[in-house]
Design a protein around this nucleic acid. Sequence first.
DNA 1: CATGAATGAGAGTTCATTCAT
DNA 2: AATGAATGAACTCTCATTCAT
Lengths: 217, 217, 217, 217
Amino acid sequence: MAKNRRDAKATKEKIITNAMLLFSKNGYDATTIDEIAKVSDVNKAMIYYYFKNKSALYSAVMSSVLDAIYQEILSSDKCCPSPLGDLESFIKTYAYYCEKHPYFPALLLRELSDSGTHLPEEMFANMRQLFGLLSKILQEGEEQNIFHNVEPMVLHFMIVGSINLFITTKPLRVATSQIEDGLNTCDGCSIEKISDYIFQKIKLMLEVNDEQNTTCA
Amino acid sequence: MAKNRRDAKATKEKIITNAMLLFSKNGYDATTIDEIAKVSDVNKAMIYYYFKNKSALYSAVMSSVLDAIYQEILSSDKCCPSPLGDLESFIKTYAYYCEKHPYFPALLLRELSDSGTHLPEEMFANMRQLFGLLSKILQEGEEQNIFHNVEPMVLHFMIVGSINLFITTKPLRVATSQIEDGLNTCDGCSIEKISDYIFQKIKLMLEVNDEQNTTCA
Amino acid sequence: MAKNRRDAKATKEKIITNAMLLFSKNGYDATTIDEIAKVSDVNKAMIYYYFKNKSALYSAVMSSVLDAIYQEILSSDKCCPSPLGDLESFIKTYAYYCEKHPYFPALLLRELSDSGTHLPEEMFANMRQLFGLLSKILQEGEEQNIFHNVEPMVLHFMIVGSINLFITTKPLRVATSQIEDGLNTCDGCSIEKISDYIFQKIKLMLEVNDEQNTTCA
Amino acid sequence: MAKNRRDAKATKEKIITNAMLLFSKNGYDATTIDEIAKVSDVNKAMIYYYFKNKSALYSAVMSSVLDAIYQEILSSDKCCPSPLGDLESFIKTYAYYCEKHPYFPALLLRELSDSGTHLPEEMFANMRQLFGLLSKILQEGEEQNIFHNVEPMVLHFMIVGSINLFITTKPLRVATSQIEDGLNTCDGCSIEKISDYIFQKIKLMLEVNDEQNTTCA
DNA sequence: CATGAATGAGAGTTCATTCAT
DNA sequence: AATGAATGAACTCTCATTCAT
C-alpha cells in the first residue's frame, strides 16, 4: 500500500545516493542542494527535513561510503588466511570497489587533501577503521617474520594513493595518451592488472629483508 | 627603497603567492577573490586587472607552482648520475619541496581528484612534464637492466600519492595518535625518514627481477 | 483577505509592473534588479526565482506591455466598421493607451532604436502583430479604393513615431516653451487633439489619389 | 613634424568619432570608456584629460552630431527657394544624412525617449535649432497660404520619427521579411524612395485645405 | 511528510574615475 | 601630453536555509 512517497527510509537513501554521486563528481562546494533535490526528485525542503544541513548530508554520505568499503573488504573471501593473502585481498578488494564506485576515490582524495575541513568525527572514525585493517595485516606479517621493515602509514598511502589516483585520473591519462608524446599513462590498463601489479610490488618490497639501507650520499 | 606601491610585478606576485596559499588551504570554490584581495592588501579590482578571472588566476597559480617544483627537481644535485641516483633525487627533492611548500600537495591532489575540472591546457602540460621526468628515469633503469617490470604511471602515483598524502594528512595523523587506539600514524616522522623509506622500498621493488608472479588464487 | 504574501501570481505581477515602470523611466542598463526588488518590496532573489535573469524579466515586461496594447486596440469599439473607421480607431486607441501608460512609448522607442539588442523572439512576434494590424487596415482600404499609394511600413512609423515622440518628449517640450524663443512645441496640446490631428492628416494623405509625383528637381 | 601624437585636436576628434560610433551602436550605458579608449588607440586616462567625464564626452558627441546635420541641411542646395522646396530639401537632406550616418538616428531616438536624462543644455539647444528650421519653413508656407492647418511639432515628429525608425529598424525589417508572414516591411526600399514618399505624402496633407474635420464619432 | 514561496548573505565581475610618474 | 596602476562603488546572479501551508 506504500505510495513510494511517505517512505522515509527510501527517500533518505535516495538522497544519500544522489548526493554521493554529485559530491564526488563536482566536489562539496560545487554541489548544490537544489541539484541534489532535483536529481532525487524530492522537494528541496525535504533534504532539510532529513538532514540538519549540507554539511551533515555530506557527512552522512561519506560515512555510508566508507562503511560500505570497510564491509566489502571485511567480507571478502580470503583464499589463504595469511598476512600475504590478507594483503592481497585488501588491495584487490579495495581496487575493485573503487573501480565499481568511481565516485569514491574522488571523495576520499578530496577529503584527505582538505585534511578534514568538512570532515566530522564520525567520518574520521571510519577512516581510521580502514587504516586499522591494513595496519593489523602488516603487523601480523611482521610478527610472523614474513614482512620486514614495515611502516604501515606509508604503505597505506602507497596503496590507497596509487589506486585512487589511478581511478580519478582516468580522463587525464586518456587525454595524455592522445597527445602522443611518448608517455605511457597506462590508459588502457585494467583494474585487475593494476591491482595485481601493486600487490606484487608491495609484496616484493615487504618480503626482502633490507637491513642495511644504502643511500648514495 | 621603492614604495612597493605601483610596482606591477611585485603586486602580481603578491597576488599569486597569496592566492596559492588560500587555494591550497581552502580549495578553489571556497577561496574568494575578496579574501585574496584582502590578504594581499590590494583592491579587489586589481586582481581582475592582472588576471582575466578567478579561473585564470588559479591557472597562473598552478603553473607557477608546478613549474617551480619541476625546476627544483631538474636542478637538484645528483651524487651519482645513474637511474638509481636520479630516482633517489626525484623522490627526495619532491618530498623536501612538498615539506617546504605544504600548500602544493593539497593543490595537486585536489586537481588530480577533480580530474581536470579547473585544469587548463597550460597546467596539464606542466603535469605531464613532471611525470615525463620520472618516466625517463625508470625507462633508462630498465634499459640498463637495473629496474625490472616497470610500470611508470603506477609508480608515479605510488611515489607522489604517498608523499602528498603524508603531507596533507599531517593534522589528521596527529589527531589520530592522540586518540590512543594503538594505531601508528607515523605522526612524528620526519620527511627525511619518510622519503628515504619510500626510496628504499621503491628501489627494492624495482631491483628484484620478478618473472613469475604468484597469486594465491 | 489573503495576506498578499506567499501569493505567487500577485508577486510575479508586482515585479513585472514595477520593472515596467523602471525600465521605461531609466532604460534597460540603468535599471537595476536591486531597485526593482526594493520598489516591489520583495527580496532580490525572488526576482530570480520567477525570472531566469534580467533579460528574461525585460522580455516578460515587454511582452506583457505589447500584448496589452494589442488587445486594447483589438477590443476598441469601432463606430463604423470600415478601413477609415479602423484607422481612426487604431490611431486613437494607440494614442490614448500611450497617454495612459507613458512608460510604453519610451520602452518601444528604445527597443526600436536598439534594433533588437535585448529583443527576444517572443517580443519580436508581438511587435509584428501590432504592425500586422495596421497593415491589414491599410490594405483593405486600398482594395476598396479608399486609400491610395499605401506604404504600410512608412505609415506605421509615421503614426507610431509621432505619437511616441509626442509622449516621451513632453518634459522637453515644456522646457522649450519656457525658453520663449518663439517655438511652438504644442506643449499644452491634449492627446485627443493630437491624435485627431494625426488621424485627419493621415486620412488626407491617403485619400488623395496622387498619380503624378512632382519633385522640384 | 607633428608626431601625430601630441596633436591635441586630432586626438580629441578621434575620441569623439569613435565614441559616437560606440554610443550609437550600444547606447550610453553599454558603452565603456575602456572600449572607446582601445578603439581610439589612446590611453584611457587621456579621455579624462580631454573630457570631464563620460557624460561630458557623450554631450560633446551629441553636439557634434547635431551640429553636423544642422549644417548639412542649411547648406543643402535648394532648387527652388520656396516653402515646398525647403520642405523637400529638409526631408531629403535629413534622410540622406541618416542613411550615411546610421549611428545618428539611434542616438537621437534614444535621447528623445530618455527625454533628456543624459541631455545637457548644449545639446538641448542643438535640438531646438533643428526643429526651429522646420518650424520656420512650415510657418512660411502657411503665411503664403500654401500649407494649411500646420502643427509644426507633430509634423516634425512625423518626419523625423518615420525616417529615424526606418533606419534603425533595418535589421528588424529584414528579419521580419524572412519570416514570410505576408508582411511588407519595405526591407528592400532605398532611402531615396522612402524620403520621396514621405515628402509627397506630407506635401499632400499640407496642401489640402481641411476646414471641416470629420470624425466618425 | 511534503511543498512552493521567501530571504540574507555573499561571490564574481565590471566600470567610471583618479593617482603617480 | 601621456600612461599604467589603483580604487570604490555597483551590479548580476547564486545558494544555503527557513517559513507558511
